[in-house]
Design a binder for these strands. Structure first.
Lengths: 194, 194
DNA sequence: TCCGTTTATTGACACGGTGTCAATTTACAT
DNA sequence: ATGTAAATTGACACCGTGTCAATAAACGGA
């Protein structure tokens, strides 16, 4: 983790971010990113060992810029289980569109690239923690009607990035409708009532 | 199932099928498929214009072998809306594992390949028809608590291949648990009751 | 049986994209 | 002004797709 204040590195990360965002899934070529960053293709290899690591670094960069930690702590503040569920669904659901382009790229690459898979699964595991915490809070309140493991699996799947993509991109749901509906279904599935 | 006198074309399709099944998403190389089919790499291009079309042909081949039509007609036979929903979820849910390897490959390719995208979206649109029909049947019975469009979107998403993958592959759900749980959530989400 | 046609093989090649390398130039700190 | 780090340039190896031409094998019909 180099602490160098190289602006080139950031320009590369921002260029990659922009390109992946504008064309999710279709991994940009190194030469495209270089051009967008106003830098030579070889300069990319001065800062990142390979394309995969560049994209992984881009997601980390996003997390820093957006401050995922703050986002998570917000949902931790909720007292009741139901509030916590709502806070988590809202926070994560609204985070997805911000990271979608890069995340989807990583997701697709993770099918063929072990390093990408590692980074992607780590990210998904982190998100699962949030699901598990919300589920545990519901259980503490005595409103959970499923085993915690199953409930977590379900919530985790409901909140997956591809679910978000399907509903908002393919079905044209607004972000608000997505959040409300996922929350409604989650409450029904986990607590048996809305 | 396989005729020993199978034509070269079919041997290629079966080789592709097998390879994509054993390694979903990681699109096999043309040379791998050729080797598996016991044929030269160039022979593939005698039967299919390119890799994408070979994979598309492989999904069509699967649909023929499995007889998707029969599967769909089974759920059409149900009288009540709730029965129809159950029949459709069961039929499609049990079809997914049969086609998963090839389907996922096509899904991933469709991010970067327009032809693959066309075939994939067509397939998903077909499946959506089944969802829409089940939803319409529920509406006729007066048990649907959502707009038909929204209900269809939701059911379609619940039944997506990636949802199946997440629950059965990443969460280790059995096929039975998957079917039961998706059906339970679908009933809750669409009818408000299990 | 021979012949013509279709089908398959062989080996070569162009192309695009990643990753590596060496030589060189630019920028900058003191 | 000079030494070092950062960036550029141009070349190259490698891999996988798709194309091509020449050749070989399979097969059906008179």
């Amino acid at each position: 983790m180099s602490r160098e204040n190289s602006s080139t590195r950031e320009r590369i990360l921002n260029a990659a971010w922009k390109l992946l965002d504008s064309n999710p899934g279709t991994a940009a070529r190194m030469s495209d990113i270089a051009k967008a960053a106003g830098v030579s293709r070889q300069a990319l290899y001065l800062h990142f060992p390979n394309r995969t690591e560049l994209f992984i670094a881009t997601t980390r960069h996003q997390d820093e810029v957006f401050g995922v930690q703050n986002m998570l702590s917000a949902s931790r503040a909720a007292t009741s289980g139901e509030d916590r569920l709502a806070a988590f669904v809202t926070a994560w659901g609204n985070y997805i569109p911000k990271i979608f382009g890069v995340a989807k790229t990583l997701m697709i690459m993770s099918e063929t690239d072990a390093d990408a898979a590692g980074a992607w699964h780590e990210r998904m595991a982190d998100m699962r923690e949030g699901c598990a915490a919300a589920v545990a809070a519901l259980a503490r309140d005595g409103v959970l009607i499923k085993e915690q493991k199953d409930a977590t699996d379900l919530l985790w799947t409901l909140l997956s990035i591809t679910t978000w993509e399907q509903l908002t991109r393919l079905c044209d749901w607004s972000q608000d409708r997505y959040i409300n509906e996922i929350l409604r279904v989650a409450r029904l599935a986990l607590c048996g009532r809305a």
